[in-house]
Amino acid sequence: MNNQYDMLSSESLRRIDREVAKYPADQKQSAVMAALVIAQDEKGWLAKETIAAVASYLGMAPIAAYEVASFYNMYDLNPVGKYKLTVCTNLPCALSGGVHAADYVKQKLGIDFNETTADGKFTLKEGECMGACGDAPVMLVNNKRMCSFMLPEQIDKLLAECK
């Protein structure tokens, strides 16, 4: 029999199980945020079918999972480039060059916020406070890697690293 969550790899399902175990047995839905992250890690972004698969695995309504996926900023509901760069431009970061760092990346890649380079390599996003204002300018790579003190030289280095 085909389950709706067959589209997720067994490795992903194993990782989701580990998250489910953190919560009381009757509160599986608590793992939905982590499960969506795991699904996004595997698929690159969250298509409606992927969200439905997560919902089905956790025994919740697809709309409830979609509400979560559309509420939190770091879920990608559309395809993104291989490297999603998110630059914080909030005030504390801006005082130390956050906006200028974003301008610099835009010019280097030839794209604006919420755009992807033609080769599909980079997507640029404007971020809100990442809780690292002392390290400004700050950027996130693919949601999980934080890069601190991103002055021109460091940005050049990062872009060159992203193959």
């Binding site: 839905q29 793992a31 945020m33 992250v37 979560v68 509420f71 939190y72 900023n73």
Partner: peptide, 27 residues
């Protein structure tokens, strides 16, 4: 004790929004 990882919503710093979020809902 367990860790619950947020995914980008300032409002979850509000304590009851945070609780909703742990419950797997919008914060």
């Amino acid at each position: 004790l367990f860790a619950h990882h947020g995914w980008g919503a300032y409002i979850c710093g509000e304590e009851t929004g945070l609780l909703e979020s742990i419950e797997g809902k919008k914060g």
